[in-house]
Simulated scan of single mutants.
Amino acid sequence: MDSTSKPTTVNDLILAVLHDARLSAEEKRVLIDEIRKNNPGTADRWTYRWAIYILGGVAAMTVIGLILIASWNLTAPDGLVAIGSASIGGLAGLLAPSMSKSSA
């Protein structure tokens, strides 16, 4: 990013602050902290964490349940398999790296 263009992403804004020679190191630290606090993508990390915990727990309980059902020589209900598959798919969707417009 050259000095005449305006920052378009949060990372561009952080880089602009880092490369601004008029700011002291303390001012840069404070500004970057404020930028990070106001970034809606990282503002609520606990939402993602709880989603991962819950989906992981559902997936683990499903696997345990399917193992127990198989050990008792019973037929596993299709709904249980669907719930396990959906929770693993949800985990994959949350944990997979997202494609950004610049890398496409």
Rank of each mutant, 00 (worst) to 15 (best):
K28I: 10
D33I: 05
A16V: 02
S3L: 15
L74T: 01
V10K: 02
N39D: 15
P97A: 08
I69F: 02
A76F: 02
Y48A: 15
D12R: 05
L68M: 15
A59G: 05
S3G: 04
S71Y: 09
N11D: 12
M61A: 13
N38A: 08
Y48S: 14
L66D: 06
T62D: 13
L55R: 00
S24H: 07
H19N: 15
I52A: 08
E34A: 13
R22H: 13
A25H: 10
D12I: 07
L95W: 04
Y53D: 12
L13I: 04
T9Q: 06
T42M: 07
A25K: 11
L94R: 00
R45N: 13
T75Q: 09
R36Y: 05
S5D: 11
L55G: 00
I14Y: 00
E34Q: 13
S85Q: 06
I14G: 00
T8E: 11
T42E: 10
L18A: 08
V17K: 01
S71A: 15
I67W: 06
V30D: 15
G65D: 05
L80Q: 01
T8I: 08
L68P: 01
G93A: 12
R22Y: 06
I52V: 15
T9K: 05
D44A: 08
S3Y: 12
V17G: 00
G57N: 09
T62V: 14
S5K: 10
S87F: 00
D12P: 03
